[in-house]
Structures are given as structure tokens and as C-alpha cells.
Design a protein around this nucleic acid. Structure first.
Lengths: 111, 111
DNA sequence: ATCCGAAGTATACGTTGTATACTAGCGAGG
DNA sequence: CCTCGCTAGTATACAACGTATACTTCGGAT
């Protein structure tokens, strides 16, 4: 399994899913992205990214288990989970960034 | 000056320049990326990225000061420096990532 | 029956990532 | 000197990623 690099937004989406306790609904991911990265993306933007992550085998999903019915109708909700390959891709990019940040705290720390 | 997001490769390039003591030649940046991120990019790919970073005001450059003559000819070398705006962009993305990584060490630490 | 809001889908397009092919100039060897 | 080979940078092309807008669906309220 070749691990291709992940884009910066893809990386944040993957992390936002993990933050919700390893699996999450799109809604929650959007909130997490807004809260942690100050990034408000449209629904379309987010689903497009999920599609690409799925094509790479970095996320999987299933329809809601009926436990959590939407309050006012609409399509059934998709629940996303990060695969082991997805976690591995996150590890790789984190490792690289940590190395590249090394020694630069004086420059990069908040002012 | 609106701070637009930076792509994941742009981020690494910026960091690789800083790693060389705040300014660097393209050659050194390529070596750093290979060493720290395990990424071997072509010269063309790297210069293209430098051009875009320059357009955003995140790097500046000047021709070598004559101090360091290339051994076998070629174009004069360009020496790159990250601007304050570039450093600020790096801070922003680092802050977001650190937040998104919080609490995920058990999942993300090397195995 | 109609309107409204929630969740997902389709599509389009600008930006970023990346390679390949090409130009330019210095030193070595014939 | 002329050409070979190396080094540094430039031009161009195209795939992948980031992102919005517009549209479809379907339940509840009126």
C-alpha cells in the first residue's frame, strides 16, 4: 500500500474526525474545523474532500445506525471513520513537520 | 495583507529555508526536505513553489553575493529568505495543527 | 398541500504539487 | 579554442487539491 502525501486540508479533516472519538458526522467535523483551525468551509467542500480521502482508503463511512435521527428530515447521515492507512498517513506528515519545526521555537512561538 | 492558507508543501519549503539559518539556497532546501520529510522533489517543482511563495509575499530572494561561486558554472544562485508574513503564516498553521493533534498521542505516536 | 430546514450530491473552477524538457555559463581535455 | 559535461535556474504542462454555488431529498410544521 503506497502512502501518498495528504494535502493540508485533508490532514485537518482526518484529524477532526479523530477528535470526535474516532468517528464522526460531517456536521461535527465542520464544527471542529471551525473551532480548532478557524476555518469555515462549505458542506460541498467538505464532502468533496471526504470523497478523495475515501478514494485513497483513508476514511470509510456508513449510514447512521438509526440511533440518531435527524430532527427535520433530509438525507440519512453518513458517519465517517479514519482507517489505519489514514492514521499512518497522519503519522508520516506529523513526523516530518515535527522535524522541520525543531529548533525554530524562537521564531515560531506566538508573539 | 490577508493571510491566505499555505499548502502543505509550501509550508515545508518555508520551514526548510528557516532551518538553514533563516535564509538558504535552493540546493540546501532540497537536501533538507529529503532529510527531514523524506521527500525528493525535482528542481522545477521547488522553484515553482518558491515563485508562488514570493507572489504571496512569504519569501524574498537575492542573487548570491559572490562569496559562494558555483564550482562548475551555471546561473547565479538565488538565496531565499522567509519574510515576516511568511513566518506568521507558519505560526497560524502550526497553531491549528497543534490543536487538532491534542489528545491524539495514543493514536498518532510512532509504533 | 406547501413551506422550511437539514443533510447530502453534482458540478465547476481556481490554486497547489510535480515532472520533464530546455537554457545558460564555467572548467576540463583534446 | 571548441565541445563536453556539470550545475543552477526557467518554461511549460498537467494532475491533484481546495472550495463555492446550486440543486435534490425528505421529514415536520402550518
Amino acid at each position: 500500500m503506497t502512502i501518498s502525501y495528504i494535502g493540508e486540508f485533508e490532514q485537518m479533516v482526518l484529524l477532526a474526525v479523530l477528535q470526535q472519538g474516532e468517528e464522526a458526522y460531517a456536521i461535527d467535523v465542520r464544527k471542529e474545523l471551525d473551532r480548532s483551525a478557524g476555518r469555515s468551509v462549505s458542506r460541498g467542500a467538505l464532502y468533496r474532500t471526504f470523497d478523495r480521502l475515501e478514494a485513497k482508503g483513508y476514511v470509510e463511512w456508513e449510514l447512521e445506525d438509526g440511533n440518531r435521527i435527524p430532527e427535520r428530515g433530509g438525507h440519512p447521515m453518513r458517519k465517517f471513520r479514519v482507517t489505519e492507512a489514514g492514521v499512518e498517513a497522519l503519522r508520516i506528515s506529523r513526523t516530518a513537520l515535527v522535524k522541520l519545526w525543531r529548533g525554530l521555537d524562537a521564531v515560531l512561538d506566538e508573539s
